[in-house]
Design a protein around this nucleic acid. Structure first.
Lengths: 230, 230
DNA sequence: TAATGTTACGGTTGTCGTAAGAATC
DNA sequence: GATTCTTACGACAACCGTAACATTA
């Protein structure tokens, strides 16, 4: 009987589905199913009614639901309490890739500072691979990176999904475009070793498209430069 | 992070000693030590200051102590709640060996009934081995037995330690007695297949004494009969 | 067929007990 | 030496992911 099983239970109850909960928890569906079975065995009561349309809480499940929420809340408060007593951690060091650091992070950081005003936060931008190295040596405590890195041995969770936008100048007359048409138009994209291009290449590979076969008109470093040029 | 680790933590904090806590928890000392280390790793803080005189709570340990107590209380209330909702369990069937059933259980049962007045409790006495069989087939829900049974596959916990008393008639003049002297005096003890005699034999074996070598004057069934005869 | 769930199985990780080590009274 | 806690190691159980299966809209 552990805290994580309670989290799995709550996720499942809220989603009314083991598969959906598994997805939220970044686990496979059988794994969550197993945890719930273990939980039921431990409590000695069936918590869910299973069907092929999902799951529903039993009477016992409803009782346990309120307790599980209490457990989670207690757990979160505990962690807050332990963290605030931490004298040496009045500062938080964050490393981030350029994309997150320029757009998503500033707003999130502003909201975070309102909740923890006494905490001094430092943020620096680096390429994703470099951030992983800094995490390994504890020179930063949190890192934001872009997809396509080997995250073995790290605690991680996805925080943002973004789409790639093909930006055209205002004068353009093209209204629809196929991937194969990319060969035919003059392109400007970021330079080869940038995080952005790596992620873009990975995404396009999922559609069977090899980005490296393109010969762009220009290669620029940084999204803002590209936007200006277009 | 599980409930049991918190129990281990609380036991250790209260006993200010890992060894003593391990004894209370029916575990070995290294096992508890390992659980506490796991707990500290999970929380990210050292909870105890170790020394060769025992352990002492750190500042973080003190914070966690109050939380751990809350967790345990929450856990116990949960189990109570789940149990009281149980419609089919408004009756509790208990099997017990004679020794417990005649002396310790009636008082305990009286106190228990005050806490759960709506619960109907049935108690029947059987030999210890028979009780294990009834537990296996769920014909009783709780069993009290005497030492010396194979408890594999059962959930069990010691509830009572008792001493064996050598009872002599009021007229006796003997003031001290060695185990080896047992051969020289006329003995009355319970019959061979009784739980009591089995337990007595096991206990005496720990002192290197084989009870079966004695040839008692009388073998009677039941403590009350023996007391009368003496 | 696509969605839900479960069961089976192999590899990895966690947990226990035994045994041995280190430190202190 | 006795007591304290820790570390090392082997056996066993728990847990996750893959794969295969069952059921139903």
């Amino acid at each position: 009987m552990n805290i994580f099983q309670m989290k799995a239970f709550i996720e499942t109850a809220q989603a009314a589905s083991i598969s959906k909960a598994a997805h939220h928890l970044h686990l496979t569906q059988p794994a969550v199913s197993q945890q719930l079975q273990s939980l039921e065995k431990c409590l000695g009561h069936q918590l869910f009614l299973r069907s092929n349309k999902g799951v529903k809480l039993t009477e016992y499940g409803n009782i346990f639901y309120s307790y599980a929420q209490s457990f989670i809340t207690l757990w979160e408060n505990l962690q807050n309490d332990l963290a605030t007593v931490e004298e040496n951690h009045t500062s938080l060091r964050i490393g981030t890739c350029a994309a997150i650091g320029q757009y998503a992070l500033p707003c999130a950081l502003y909201l975070f500072k309102q909740k923890k005003p006494q905490l001094s936060v430092s943020v620096q931008s680096f390429p994703s691979l470099q951030i992983l190295g800094q995490l390994r040596e504890h020179s930063i405590q949190i890192g934001f990176i872009q997809n396509g890195c080997d995250l073995k041995d790290f605690n991680y969770s996805p925080v943002l999904k973004s789409r790639f936008i093909l930006a055209a100048p205002p004068s353009t007359t093209v209204t629809s475009l196929d991937l194969t048409d990319l060969h035919t138009i003059p392109l400007i994209c970021s330079s080869d070793d940038s995080d952005l291009k790596k992620a873009l290449r990975l995404s396009l590979l999922e559609y069977g498209f090899e980005l490296n076969l393109l010969t762009p008109l220009l290669e620029l470093d940084g999204i803002e430069s590209i936007k200006s040029t277009v």
